[in-house]
Design a protein around this nucleic acid. Structure first.
Lengths: 199, 199
DNA sequence: CCGGTACTGAACACGGTGTTCAATATCGGT
DNA sequence: ACCGATATTGAACACCGTGTTCAGTACCGG
């Protein structure tokens, strides 16, 4: 016996459950999915489900966490945002994330889009805010205040991005990642510059 | 007997139920509120509730409809948006709506803010989109296309506004209506101009 | 004071949740 | 190939919220 009781089985079971939830979310939306639905789809016993997750929400959050890891990993291997002169608003996360969404379409459509529950929206907001903060925070002069606070500018940027991403996903990618990225920048960059008094 | 069977009682009862729901939403958030909670708070019998509304969602939507009426009414009596030269992006709805939200703080906090359920978010988006479309649609030249489509620009504007409104409400009005309105314009107007090729 | 309408509240069937537990299956190591 | 440990199973259960039904009661307008 190994001290680590983690069979390969538990990983397999968790995967089955996560996959079943995603399929069902794409079909009915999160709220309508029942634990019974999930375990039927995954061919897993009821008590097994509750052995792994406290409830449906925790299962969803665990899936979201997987997505987050994937994303962070993808961002780290993407071109860094330190290129170009300081003071320029690059929003480097944007194009990388649109690409990532296209690659993991099923996952993103289920979780990020309209289908995902309210629980997830909040987490997504958090994840995106962390990403954007890393880009915007270095640009503000530490000295004086800005026309709009960094916090509010972050909130604004993340909301705009989230809205565009959701629209892109829910409309079956009606344009290329480069185009939707250009749209995002066209709309937000001028406002961000004005809000943080850049350039 | 009047042909219209509508007693004053039914209006009173509907009001009691709507009020009870709002109070409870402010306390626990929509999802956590139970029909039993509502009828206890309103001192109304269970079957009375179901005599008036199909379910909890319909009650909420009826409240939202009341809010919509109030808002439309307030907008009509506000200074019209046709002032200033054509081609100028005025976004006249914004300040009026921040004021309206401050006047009906309880209602807005319950419905528009984080507490409101997912059902409502969608409706709010619709209502706001109608408002904004009325302002932006006349500005685009009917001839050629724009760098960003009107639909996407609308989506963007509404999301940004909704995010700021929610933030303002959920943070207990940390600044005046005029200030948050100025913030909104600072952030969005430059992007809208660029997106629709105005000025 | 009467006819009609609105309200009451208990009882019910239904469906989803999360727990329990004894039986069974499967893995890893030797 | 076998054993001990661990993971999984699925039925049974208590609990809670939903939405319906219905006989009885309160209330309004005329």
């Amino acid at each position: 016996m190994t001290a680590r009781g983690e069979d390969r089985r538990v990983q397999r079971t968790r995967g089955l459950l996560q996959n079943a939830l995603i399929e069902l979310m794409l079909e009915k939306g999160y709220e309508a999915v029942t634990v019974q639905d999930i375990i039927d789809r995954a061919n897993v016993g009821r008590s097994t489900f509750y052995g792994h997750f406290l409830d449906k929400d925790r299962l969803l959050l665990s899936t979201l966490e997987s997505l987050r890891s994937l994303l962070i990993q993808a961002m780290d291997s993407a071109p860094s945002s330190s290129e170009g002169g300081p003071g320029e608003v690059r929003l480097g996360f944007s194009l990388a994330m649109f690409h990532h969404a296209r690659e993991h379409l099923r996952l993103y459509r289920a979780i990020v889009g309209r289908q995902g529950g309210a629980i997830v929206q909040q987490q997504i907001q958090r994840i995106l805010t962390d990403l954007v903060r890393r880009e915007l925070a270095p640009l503000v002069k530490p000295g004086a205040g800005t026309p709009v606070s960094l916090e509010v500018t972050l909130l604004y940027t993340v909301s705009a991005f989230h809205a565009l991403l959701t629209w892109w996903l829910d409309h079956d990618l009606p344009c290329s990642a480069e185009e939707i990225d250009r749209t995002f920048r066209t709309l937000t960059v001028p406002g961000i510059k004005a809000a943080l008094e850049l350039r």
